[in-house]
Design a binder for these strands. Structure first.
Lengths: 180, 180
DNA sequence: ACCTGAACACCGTTCAAGT
DNA sequence: ACCTGAACACCGTTCAAGT
C-alpha cells in the first residue's frame, strides 16, 4: 500500500472508531469520510461496504473476548468463569452502541466479514457453558445458542435508554437463571 | 372528513398494515403511498410523521393487551396470570416485526403518540407482577420496568433470525426466573 | 495506484400548485 | 378541502475522470 493510501486508511479507521463511539454502528459513512477530510470514494476504496469498516473496527474487541474466554476455560470455578464471560460480553457491547445487532446479523449471514469472529465468540461461550453444566453449575436445558441469545438480549437492553439503568439487576436475574 | 379523504385514509391504513406485516416497522412510507396508489403528500396529510401511521396501526393491539390484562387481574392464580400476560406480550410483538423498538422509543419519548398506550401497557403488567409478588408467586427484587424489560428482550430475540427458533425455550427460562 | 466528487437510486418530509 | 409530485436534505454505493 502506498504511503498516502496507508495514511488515509489509518485515519479512516481512527475517525470511524470515533464516530461509531458517538453515534453507534448506524452512523453515516459519509459522515466518517467528511470528518476524515477524504472523498467518499476513498472510504469505499478502502472499505467496500459499511460492514467492512465495521468489521475491521469490531473484530479486535470480539477476538479479545474469545481469547479471554480461552483463559477462563482452565480457571478453577466453572460457574464463575461462565458468569465472567457473560459480564465481558455485556461490557463489549457497552463499548459500541448497537454492536449486538451487527453481531446477530453476522451470525445469520455466512458471507459477513464478521461471521467467523462471531461464531468463534459463540463457541467460546458454549465451551464455558458445557464445562459449567458438567460441574452442575449451570442448567442443562440450554446450549451455546441460547447462551448467546440471553447475553445478546442483555446487550440490547443496554442500548435501550428506558432500560439501560436496569441492566445490572437484570444481569443478575439472567445469570442466576443460567446457574439455576 | 370528506368522503374521498376518508377513503384514502382507510386505504392507507389497510395498505400500511400490509406493508408493515411484510417488512416490519422500518418499512418505507413511500412504499406505502405507492402501493396505496396515492401521492406521498396525501400520506403525509393524513399521517404527519411515520410514527403517526405506526401509532394508529399499533395502538389497537396495545390497548387490547392492556384490556386483557385488566381481566387477568381478577383471575384465580396470580402467578399464572402474570405468565399469561408475558405470553400475550410476546405474541403481540410477534404480529409486527420490530414493534418492540417502537415501544421502547415511545416509552422514552413523552411526545410520542404511542407514549400513553405503552405506559398503560407497562402499568398493566406491573399490577399483575405486584399481585403475584404479594402471593409469593414472583420474585420481589424486580418491578414493572424490569418486567417490561424482560419481555421486550424476549420480543427482540423473536425478531432476530438466529434466535427466533429459541424463543419458546428462552421464554420458559425467563418465566421461571420471574416466578423463581 | 490512488483520490475525487458527480451520479444513481433510495429515504423522510415539506410545500407550492392544482382540483 | 384535499391531492399531487417536484424539491430539499439526507443516505449507501458506483464509477468516470483526474493526479
Amino acid at each position: 500500500m502506498r504511503a498516502d493510501a496507508r495514511k488515509n486508511y489509518d485515519h479512516l479507521l481512527e475517525v470511524g472508531r470515533e464516530v461509531i463511539a458517538e453515534q453507534g454502528v448506524d452512523a453515516s459513512m459519509r459522515e466518517v469520510a467528511r470528518r476524515a477530510g477524504v472523498g467518499i470514494g476513498t472510504l469505499y476504496r478502502h472499505f467496500p461496504t459499511r460492514e467492512a469498516l465495521l468489521e475491521t473496527l469490531l473484530r479486535g474487541g470480539f477476538d479479545a473476548v474469545t481469547a479471554a474466554a480461552r483463559a477462563l476455560e482452565t480457571s478453577a470455578a466453572s460457574g464463575d468463569a461462565l458468569v465472567t464471560w457473560l459480564r465481558e460480553m455485556v461490557a463489549l457491547t457497552y463499548r459500541h452502541r448497537g454492536v449486538i445487532a451487527s453481531m446477530t446479523a453476522a451470525i445469520a449471514d455466512p458471507g459477513s466479514a464478521l461471521h467467523a469472529s462471531c461464531v468463534e465468540l459463540r463457541g467460546s461461550g458454549a465451551r464455558l457453558l458445557t464445562r459449567a453444566q458438567a460441574d452442575g453449575q449451570a442448567r442443562t436445558d440450554i446450549d451455546g445458542v441460547d447462551l448467546l441469545a440471553l447475553v445478546s438480549a442483555l446487550a440490547w437492553l443496554n442500548d435501550q435508554p428506558p432500560f439501560a439503568a436496569r441492566v445490572d439487576g437484570l444481569f443478575d436475574v439472567i445469570a442466576r437463571a443460567i446457574r439455576s
